[in-house]
Write a protein that binds this DNA or RNA. Structure first.
Length: 781
DNA sequence: TCCTCCCGCCAAGCA
DNA sequence: TGCTTGGCGGGAGGA
């Protein structure tokens, strides 16, 4: 059926006319025909626009006065319309825009005070509303559902609602933010954005598989309506349709804003997340369009409430509609504040619960010293990505030859008595999971947990830690020096937080106290790989898969790798080293020293053909971790990097970069920096000063470099990073790319200085992030 | 042409 | 059983 064409007949309101013409009506017939007091006319809508633009006149009484005073004018206009010709009259009809849900919502809101007196409840009768506003019930439901999602109204009975106004709004937003964090919307947003990029270069990529992985726990996390205590939810068909309800969609939409930084959400991303939670596999176009439609409905109401505002995010691929949160800032609740205060005044015991720890971290987003949880996640991600890329592009032989690492047999096993004082010798762990034991590293803010697969022989050292917070920094070891290549890789795979979804054979539930069985089936490894796909980029997975043939099969199931210097961890025995290790991957050069960590993101030569200028690199270079730092970093020595030459040039990991930039506030959430570098001169944004979680050492040097220190809540160490905005003035040879890659504070290819501070409280790691200079803008309509 | 979203069908669910 | 509620998608109007 088509939308009824506009009628050109005479006098009455368009809507009234339409209602009379169109049978049957969903709206019950009016008991009596009364002259419209506030009809849909351009004048009335102009009135609404004016009132909407002026909050002062938004009170109910003033509105009604306006309406009354203009009624005569309106009637006169109607008389004029009666004498107009059909075309003219049609032109005089309210345009589509004037009948928008947003304007209707304005009218609806004008009927009730923002903050009604608690003693005097306002009731909403739908029949009255539809009558007075001259709209169909269906439209009122749209409005009421969104208002109900914010607990501005609640349903009393059929046709009857209670108006709460904005009294509950702060509480509601706080609750929604909390739920949004628990549902890991940050990660989902990042995942979608990342995938968008990858899809550009890999349209046939295995997106669904990765998405499914990233939304793996969505069924579990899929929540119904978020209620507030004291605000009862009595939706009529709540049980049957709650998952698709506009109410729930509205709440989720709001959550996306509340957890995003900056608080800009594009419709596309929101729709994908909402679809992803419903049914990922059927990610078809019609479903997407439907979600977008609903989001427009919701956005119109939220805009009327002045909670969001439409903007456009301009990126490389064009202009995208998005919405920016303009509502009240949602502060941590009192419990979080209390936790924060506690954490700053005394050292919490090691056995402090994860939840408390997370809350503490979450509650200090603007701490001048501590890193935000997002930043922490970013570090994990960058390092993971770096190493994944590295792994995916170097065959075992290459690793062996280029790194020229001694075989594990050549490495003397340290005496057990020495181990506590020694930093953890690290290397590439054999991919065979038979020798690894998992622990969970919970991500503080958004809930993604990292399952860290320790070597079997290492697991026991972890069990000495508090099970409540499994990874704890140990007293600083006596560091006498740091050399490269002393690495033992611990596998880290990302998992969704919900342990309940794991099978009984899946080990991460056991936290640190459990050891992994010595033997682990290949299927388990594959499951690990699958879960690991939640974070690595799709093309990485593909590349990794394509490289399986060239890699030892033991690497096939090597989801990702981290170098985690764990003091007190014994290095694995020889039996734990697979053939891969024998090939030099899991070799230990100097067991007595901790590992300086240097990362690289190789770029295949094929990409260099089209990307001949290294606009940016994300290179956690020369990350020097104190031996007692429990941190993650990609494993690759400078010597490896240098010898990589042109065959393994850096790959700009745009996803990681975007993650980084967005979470330090340099670019909006809806903006992506593409992988293809386009060099534009953009001075370092003043936003760089808004790195609220940076330390006092943050500074901008000549508008080109930002250094910031962040604090790892897990190992309680500081990391020093610098963002360098590069503007190459001339194309560089691939070799130059490689050279730049190794830039360190001391210059290219310099030996990283030992940065472990003598003061234990200032243990520092360093890295350099090369950021492209790009133009990114958010425009408002 | 694409974006925006009005409009009303019709099924689920309630009284 | 009639009415309420609301998912859904066609397609109109606007940019």
């Amino acid at each position: 059926l088509k939308t009824p064409l506009k009628q050109t007949s005479t006098s009455q309101l368009v809507l009234t006319e339409r209602q009379l013409d169109c049978q049957p009506l969903t709206t019950p017939p009016k008991p009596k025909e009364t002259p419209p007091a506030d009809p849909w006319t351009p004048t009335s809508n102009l009135k609404m626009l004016i009132s909407a633009a002026s909050p002062e006149i938004r009170s109910r009484e003033q509105r009604r006065q306006l309406s009354d005073s203009s009624s005569e004018v309106l009637q006169t206009k109607h008389c004029l319309q009666e004498h107009l010709l059909g075309d003219e009259y049609e032109k005089s009809q309210p345009s589509r825009k004037e009948k928008s849900l947003g304007l209707l919502c304005h009218k609806f809101l004008a009927r009730y005070p923002d903050y009604p007196s608690p003693s005097q409840k306002s009731y909403i009768c739908l029949d009255e509303v539809t009558e007075e506003l001259h709209v169909e019930r269906r439209r009122i439901y749209d409005i009421v559902n969104v208002l109900e999602s914010l607990h501005m109204v609640s349903r009393l009975a059929r046709n009857r609602y209670v108006w709460h106004g904005r009294h509950n709004l702060p509480q509601t937003l706080q609750a929604l933010k909390k739920v949004g964090e628990e549902n890991k919307y940050i990660q989902q947003i990042q995942m979608i954005k990342r995938r968008e990029y990858e899809h550009e270069f890999d349209p046939d990529g295995e997106r669904n598989e990765e998405m499914a992985s990233s939304f793996g726990s969505s069924e579990q996390s899929e929540m119904s309506f978020v209620e507030l205590p004291g605000v009862e939810f009595r939706a009529a068909s709540v049980n049957g349709r709650k998952y698709k309800s506009l109410r729930v969609m509205s709440q989720k939409f709001v959550m996306l804003f509340l957890v995003s930084t900056p608080q800009i959400v594009s419709l596309e991303v929101a729709a994908k997340i909402l679809i992803g939670e419903d049914q990922l596999e059927d990610l078809d176009k019609s479903k997407f369009k439907t979600k977008i439609r609903r989001l427009y409905d919701i956005a119109n109401v939220l805009s009327s409430l002045k909670l969001i505002k439409k903007v456009h995010v301009t990126e490389e691929r064009g202009r995208k509609p998005a919405f920016k949160w303009t509502g009240p800032e949602v502060l941590p609740n009192t419990q979080d504040i209390k936790l924060e205060a506690t954490s700053t005044t005394c050292s919490p015991p090691i056995s402090e619960s994860i939840t408390s720890k997370e809350q503490k971290i979450q509650s200090a987003p603007t701490s001048p010293v501590k890193i935000s949880a997002s930043m922490y996640l970013f570090i994990i991600f960058v390092l993971e990505t770096s190493f994944s890329l590295f792994l995916s592009q170097m065959t075992a032989e290459e690793i062996q030859m280029k790194c020229a690492l001694p075989s594990p047999e050549a490495v003397p096993k340290p005496e057990p008595s020495q181990q506590p004082a020694l930093s953890q010798p690290l290397g590439v762990c054999p991919a065979s999971h038979s020798s690894v034991s998992p622990v969970i590293l919970p991500h503080p803010q958004s809930g993604v947990s990292y399952a860290i697969y320790l070597h079997h022989s290492q697991a026991h050292t972890v069990t000495t830690y508090s099970p409540g917070f499994m990874l704890q920094p140990l007293p600083c070891a006596n560091v006498t020096g740091i050399k490269r290549n002393n690495s033992k890789i611990l596998n880290i795979i990302t998992t969704e937080e919900g342990d309940t979804q794991r099978g009984p054979d899946e080990p991460t539930k056991s936290l640190a106290a459990e050891e992994r069985p010595e033997t682990k089936s290949e299927n388990s490894s594959q499951r690990c790989l699958k879960r690991s796909q939640a974070l690595p980029e799709t093309n990485l997975i593909k590349r990794r898969k394509s490289d399986e043939e060239s890699l030892d099969t033991s690497l096939t199931f090597f989801p990702s790798g981290y170098l985690i210097p764990l003091t007190h961890c014994t290095h694995g025995n020889k039996a734990e080293c697979s053939t891969k290790e024998k090939a030099g991957v899991c070799s230990l050069q100097h067991p007595a020293y901790s590992s300086p960590i240097t990362g690289v993101i190789p770029m295949p030569a094929s990409e260099l053909k089209t990307v001949n200028i290294p606009a940016f690199h994300i290179t956690p270079l020369n990350i020097m971790l104190s031996p007692n730092s429990i941190a993650a970093a990609p494993v690759l020595s400078n010597s490896c990097l240098n010898s990589s030459s042109t065959s393994s040039a850096p790959n700009p990991s745009s996803s990681a970069l975007n993650f980084m930039l967005q979470h330090i506030g340099l670019i909006p959430a809806g903006v992506q920096v593409p992988a293809n570098p386009v060099l534009q001169h953009v001075p370092v944004s003043s936003q760089s000063e808004n790195i609220s979680h940076s330390s006092g050492s943050t500074n901008v040097q000549e508008g080109k470099v930002i250094e910031f220190t962040f604090y790892s809540p897990i190992n309680e160490s500081n990391f020093l990073f610098s963002l360098q905005f590069l503007q190459p003035k001339e194309p560089q040879e691939p070799q130059a790319v490689t050279e730049n890659f190794f830039r360190t504070p001391g210059g290219p290819n310099t030996e990283p200085a030992l940065s472990a501070n003598s003061d234990d409280t200032q243990r520092t790691s360093q890295g350099t992030l090369y950021i492209p200079q790009r133009k990114l803008e958010v425009s408002e309509d």
